[in-house]
Design a protein around this nucleic acid. Structure first.
Length: 277
DNA sequence: CTCAGTGTTCAGTG
DNA sequence: TCACTGAACACTGA
């Protein structure tokens, strides 16, 4: 599920459902893998009877701002989500949103009940996500170790070019490095390189200023668009590689050109050799 | 039954 | 210190 656009969708859900409300009940899983650096009791104590004053996100992390610190900081991992009891995660038809059919959902790690009766649940199937408490999420690890967020503080072209040129790793892995660009994950990296027409195996420090400029534009465009459609994949432009990259079919094509798959840094990389140089 | 997977971290090697 | 690889984490679905 979650790269920057999906995490931003979760943050918006939390903002829509939670902002201005008071937390009247808290349930936290006894799961020391997902609930890190704290205990269910401490989590409960930090959240119970607090008012939600706002929300924030940086890279793939998002948090709730409360009227007293510490605040809860969420990372969705590969299979995490934030759900509202009154809004099914998938909307099949237009009209009023259907409520969840099963509540709380399977793999719920944290459940909050708010003073207007609304409920939020943080789920984590594969347990690769994390739930922590932070007095100041932005200035402390893990967020303080992140690079720029393409939506919040994308560097100007010159500075961006210097950043890219200072790296000798292959460009796909640089994009994936959270200390470079926070929030970029596997499909965004592939999409950006496809749209910038760059070979994912190129060394970052061999890209020309012009190629880096194209790369920066593609990064901005892909992230902005995905967030604008609330990470709804069915509303991603049909021209995107995204729609063809899953399943690793060996007859996969886009615009008549064959899609190839290779492994970089242990991650499957989808690309179009005839279009990416 | 086997394996890959929208992520991160850590140990180990060069 | 850096670059890179592989494993680990845990579970589902193809």
């Amino acid at each position: 599920m979650p790269e920057l656009p999906e995490v931003e969708r979760a943050r918006r859900l939390a903002a829509r459902v939670g902002t201005g409300k008071r937390i009247v009940a808290v349930w936290c899983a006894k799961d020391p893998i997902v609930v890190e650096d704290t205990t269910p009791a401490r989590m409960r104590r930090a959240l119970l009877d607090r008012a939600i004053t706002g929300t924030g996100r940086r890279g793939k992390y998002f948090w709730l701002e409360l009227d007293r610190r510490p605040w809860p900081l969420f990372h969705l991992g590969m299979t995490g989500d934030l759900r509202s009891r009154d809004e099914a995660p998938i909307q099949l038809e237009s009209g009023p949103r259907a409520p969840e059919t099963v509540w709380p959902p399977r793999f719920t790690k944290l459940r909050l009940e708010l003073d207007d009766g609304a409920e939020l649940a943080f789920t984590n199937k594969r347990r690769l996500g994390r739930l922590r408490l932070r007095k100041n999420p932005v200035t402390t690890p893990p967020i303080s170790r992140l690079g720029f967020d393409p939506l919040i503080d994308l560097p100007a072209p010159g500075e961006f070019a210097d950043l890219v040129s200072s790296r000798s790793a292959v460009i796909k892995l640089v994009l994936l490095d959270q200390s470079f660009a926070a929030g970029v994950g596997n499909w965004i990296a592939d999409e950006v390189l496809f749209q910038a027409r760059l070979d994912p195996r190129r060394r970052a420090n061999t890209l020309t200023r012009s190629e880096i400029g194209t790369l920066r534009s593609a990064l901005k465009r892909v992230v902005t668009k995905a967030v604008a459609v609330d990470a709804d994949k069915t509303r991603f432009p049909r021209t995107w590689l995204f729609h063809q990259r899953w399943g690793k079919r060996n007859d996969a094509r886009i615009g008549g050109e064959p899609i190839e798959f290779l492994t970089l840094g242990g991650r499957t990389t989808a690309w179009v050799p005839t279009r990416q140089r």
